[in-house]
């Protein structure tokens, strides 16, 4: 049952992302070159909606949250590595799956490269322990840092700022 649910939600997510242009090399590189804001706006819009939704669910105890630990140094290094891969391939781990399904063979290579990258990480995982324990503040969120018991008080203004950004500040294209 849960497998079918995963398949159903995944199919809907895949279709929406594909229709939104998330699997387009030009759109992703356009974002990283700060010329075409479509994908950046799509991500910010998604986050604006989701943040309020999750913290509204949380008010009625219905949010199955999963907070990842914050280890600042390790995450910065990880992000720098990820960013290079992002710009070189023009995909991310999810969008290369979408683009593979569109028949883009370079995306299939990114997907296979990803399987090797994950295997490589599994191989060197014991060596990564210091990076994960260094500057590890545990599962912290903005509400927990600012000691706000109902996260919705931060979620609403945060989403409002994002909506202001996507609708009023950011343009679609820059030259």
């Amino acid at each position: 049952m849960k497998l079918l649910l995963g398949l159903a939600i995944g199919t809907a997510i895949g279709a929406v992302m594909q229709l939104g242009g998330a699997s387009s090399y030009r759109k992703i590189l356009g974002s990283l070159l700060l010329k075409d804001m479509t994908i950046i706006k799509l991500i910010l819009m998604t986050i604006a909606v989701t943040t309020v939704g999750i913290y509204a669910l949380d008010l009625v105890d219905m949010a199955n949250m999963s907070i990842k630990p914050t280890y600042v140094v390790g995450i910065i290094i990880a992000g720098l590595i990820f960013g290079v891969g992002f710009a070189i391939s023009g995909y991310c781990p999810g969008t290369c799956v979408l683009a593979s399904a569109e028949g883009k063979t370079d995306a299939v290579f990114t997907l296979i490269g990803g399987l090797f990258g994950a295997a490589l990480y599994a191989l060197v995982y014991p060596l990564m322990a210091p990076l994960i324990s260094l500057t590890n503040y545990g599962e912290i969120t903005l509400p927990s840092v600012f000691n706000v018991s109902n996260g919705i008080w931060i979620a609403v203004p945060f989403s409002a700022i994002l909506l202001l950004l996507v609708f009023r500040v950011l343009k679609d294209r820059y030259e």
């Binding site: 390790g74 995450i75 990880a78 992000g79 990820f82 891969g85 070189i88 490269g113 990803g114 994950a118």
Partner: peptide, 12 residues
């Protein structure tokens, strides 16, 4: 690129 993406993602 794919290798770097997943190595970084798993570290993060």
């Amino acid at each position: 690129g794919g290798m770097l993406l997943l190595f970084g993602a798993r570290l993060a």
